[in-house]
Computed example of a mutant assay.
Amino acid sequence: MRGPGLIAARWLALLLPLALIAGALGSQYLGGLYPCEMCHWQRWPHYGAIAAALLAFFVPQTNNRVALVVLAALLIALSGAIGVFHAGVEYRWWDGITGCSAAPSSGSGDLLADIMAAPLTRCDVPQWTFAGISLAGFNALFSLGGAVAILALLKRKAG
């Protein structure tokens, strides 16, 4: 497959995770919003997608380029799926699976020790929202929508 579909998909597979990571790092280092454990989980697939999409610009064979773009799209979708889970924890649709989404309680009976051992940023409390959507929710929307768009571009026929 050659043509505008692959070119556009390759660029979107690179620029979308770059933009989302730039937003995450900007909100952390410029905006003072410190990521919780699940926030970091959402970043790792984007880093992988950036690497795969970059490689897709340098491999010589079209089939390899397509495979790398598909891999990037799947990694972006994985980040979106983690974002859905994280947003669900924030909205109290379900319980989180980490210590950052539960009140401190080790069962030791020492409340101060429990508080001191708790993470600084809780996973079940959104630090920022816009129109009722948290950063995890926005990551889910942009990542899942972007992954679908990348795959749709790859299916587009040239001409």
Rank of each mutant, 00 (worst) to 15 (best):
P45C: 00
S143T: 11
A51G: 02
N64Y: 01
F130T: 14
F130W: 15
A73W: 12
G99V: 00
G109H: 00
I21Q: 08
W128G: 10
L30M: 12
V84S: 02
Y29R: 11
A24W: 03
L120E: 14
G88P: 04
F57L: 15
D114M: 06
A147Q: 01
L75R: 06
L25F: 10
L33P: 09
C123F: 04
I150F: 09
E37T: 13
D114W: 02
A49C: 12
S27M: 11
D95S: 02
W93S: 03
F57Q: 14
Q42L: 05
W94P: 08
S143A: 15
A152F: 13
G145D: 05
F130P: 07
V89K: 03
I82F: 06
G132H: 12
A87W: 09
P104L: 10
R65K: 15
W94N: 01
D124Y: 04
A103D: 09
D95I: 00
A51F: 15
I21N: 07
I82N: 07
P119M: 07
P4I: 01
G132N: 12
V148A: 08
L153G: 01
Y29H: 15
G23C: 02
A24M: 10
A118M: 14
P35D: 08
R2N: 10
F138V: 13
A24C: 05
A51R: 11
G107I: 13
L111H: 09
E37L: 11
A102P: 00
A8H: 02
L74R: 13
A53L: 15
S79P: 14
G83P: 05
G83V: 02
C123N: 12
W41A: 15
A52D: 06
S101V: 00
Q28R: 02
V66S: 09
G48C: 05
Y34M: 09
P60M: 05
V70S: 05
A149I: 10
A56G: 14
L111S: 13
P126A: 12
L15Q: 03
S108H: 06
W94F: 05
A149R: 03
R92S: 02
G32F: 01
G26D: 08
L141H: 08
H46G: 14
F142P: 12
G31D: 05
W128F: 15
G26F: 03
A13F: 04
L68G: 00
L144T: 09
W44D: 14
N139Y: 11
L151G: 11
R92M: 00
P35S: 08
A19E: 05
L112V: 14
D124R: 00
W93I: 06
G96W: 00
S101E: 04
A81D: 01
G146H: 10
Q42H: 04
A73M: 13
T98D: 06
E90C: 01
R43W: 04
G32V: 01
Q61Y: 08
L111C: 08
G96K: 03
A81G: 13
I50G: 06
G145S: 09
Q42D: 07
V66T: 14
F85V: 08
A73S: 15
L111Y: 05
M116N: 15
L111F: 04
